[in-house]
């Protein structure tokens, strides 16, 4: 399956990927509204730019082959889709036990700041290439099969 890969060597730490993710998962689909209004009501990007000195990397869910989060999920909210390979998340099922957050060694799961639910990357099902990858100005993020 195609996944999002980061090469920190060319990540320039601009965080446009975070903004793109935010917009893509907003209701307004409008960066300005999403950033100004929807963030206040709990919208947050699924990815995260890590920093270590000048080295940066935009990291998000790896959609593991054998996902630790799915093993840990007590409610069935997280599942590995055998067809697409994506680790899917059903917000209605989630009970906010944070088991997945604890189990994911890649830190790819965030807590929703308001709802007792988690938030994670869905690989932008409505796009052919995830928003973060499309927005990366230096192609440090790629969407490919490896």
């Amino acid at each position: 399956m195609k996944r999002v890969f980061i090469n920190p060597e060319f990540c320039i730490g601009c965080r446009l990927c975070e903004l793109a993710c935010l917009t893509e998962h907003s209701q307004s689909k409008d960066l300005i509204l999403a950033y100004r209004d929807e963030v206040a009501s709990g919208l947050l990007p699924r990815n995260r730019v890590e920093e270590k000195g000048y080295i940066t990397a935009s990291l998000t869910c790896r959609h593991c082959e054998d996902p630790y989060c799915v093993r840990a999920c007590i409610s069935g909210a997280l599942q590995k889709d055998p067809e697409t390979g994506r680790v899917t998340y059903d917000e209605d099922q989630c009970v906010g036990c944070w088991s997945c957050l604890m189990a994911c060694p890649f830190g790819s799961i965030k807590r929703h700041p308001i709802k007792e639910k988690i938030v994670k990357c869905d690989l932008c099902p409505d796009r052919s290439v995830p928003a973060c990858v499309s927005s990366c100005p230096n192609q440090a993020l790629t969407f490919e099969e490896k």
Binding site: E9, C11, Y54, A140
Partner: peptide
């Protein structure tokens, strides 16, 4: 400067 030089992805 490494933080700046990386803005040129050689492939691009």
């Amino acid at each position: 400067v490494p933080a700046l030089a990386r803005r040129q992805n050689p492939e691009i």
